[in-house]
Design a protein around this nucleic acid. Structure first.
Lengths: 197, 197
DNA sequence: CGCATTTTTGATACACGTCAATCTCCGTGG
DNA sequence: CCACGGAGATTGACGTGTATCAAAAATGCG
């Protein structure tokens, strides 16, 4: 799974209360306590804490989403959060500006939409699910850093072999163009070209 | 689908601002405006409004959940709501009692947990998904009224034929016992006996 | 450079989808 | 009261998309 293979890191809290995580790093663990966060950039995977210690994919957070707000109510996190790409988090609520009520309300609305997106990633043909996830992660930009094949598999409820085949075929149709660094292909970075489909 | 086969009904608003819907009835339509509601009992299906007018399953609301809170922010509903069983709704927020902030916060937390439940219903073996949904709908009681086979299929991303086979096999193992009314079996009402599994 | 991890690829199996016929339950109208 | 028709449910036969198992290749890291 690779989910538990990365050690806890120093939190590197800058004066502006901002914290950064690299791909694969654990952000917080279900049951522990801490702050609520807004995800400013990156992609985070949320897993339910199963009795047997085995994590099960529950949800995804992308830029703009609120993470771990339940800690404000219950004093601990309901899910385990793991960075799937490099992430930048800041404590929430931000304090100044919009009223807390409006902020909560729009978070609730956004959470519902995000949930609907994720449900859609688990229905239909395999290729469409993977493409749907890639589009969600790309979010209008022209390049993406994808999670590992195994993480994509967990999110879409497919097997990593299937993900590998689908991504390879997207490369062959030039919908995904590997970004090479000094001639070597970093297997997660792609320029996207959905027009090729 | 049966989703569009039932006419809009009179809203039957009692003096206490409570409204009831029968199985299959449309509660509100994506894009229209109205109140936010708390679902006091029953099960509601939420669908995204697709361009082509075709609905796609997005989420499920069960007793205690908040429905359509986005209308307070944007002035219209993001999803289309349909009663899957008999439902009882009341306007939200209730006004008295807990502060609006806490109520919103706990709704947000609850929405996240519900979303995780639904994601789980779309992964793994077909029989486990159907069983998971039935358990969610039963919620500790000893009997359930199930949605139609087609609705169960939409929720679990399976086909109604598959659902029919699975439910029949649950009947054969006596995990589900049809409740007969005057000798006739209403194909949606069951006494549950999960110990039989 | 060497080893662990991730990814790719192939061969084969099976769970579920698809298509089609039939059945039950109900409401409607003659 | 019974004929009719429609919606939902059941069942069977068959096809296929994805899982599974296995092995090799590519990548990344100490």
């Amino acid at each position: 799974m690779g989910l538990f293979s990365v050690a806890e890191r120093d939190t590197r809290l800058s004066p502006r209360r901002r914290s950064a995580y690299g791909a694969g790093e654990r952000i917080y663990h279900a049951g522990s306590d801490g702050l609520a966060w807004r995800l400013h950039c990156g992609v985070v995977r949320l897993d339910t804490a199963e009795p047997a210690g085995s994590a099960r994919f529950a949800s995804l957070a992308i830029a703009g989403d609120i993470l771990g707000c339940e800690t404000m109510l219950f004093g601990n996190y309901a899910f385990t959060a793991t960075a799937l790409t490099n992430c930048d988090l800041r404590p929430w609520p931000e304090g100044e500006g919009v009223s807390v009520g409006d902020s909560l309300l729009s978070s609730l609305a956004k959470a519902q939409n995000r949930a609907a997106d994720i449900v859609a990633l688990r229905g239909g043909q395999a290729a469409d699910r993977v493409l749907g996830l890639i589009k969600l992660l790309t979010d209008g930009a022209d390049r993406v850093v994808l999670p590992t094949r195994q993480d994509i598999a967990d999110i879409t409820d497919l097997r990593f072999e299937t993900i590998s085949r689908i991504i390879k075929s997207l490369e062959r149709t030039r919908a995904l163009l590997p970004i090479k660094i000094e001639g070597v292909h970093a297997t997660r970075s792609y320029a996207v070209n959905f027009a090729a489909l």
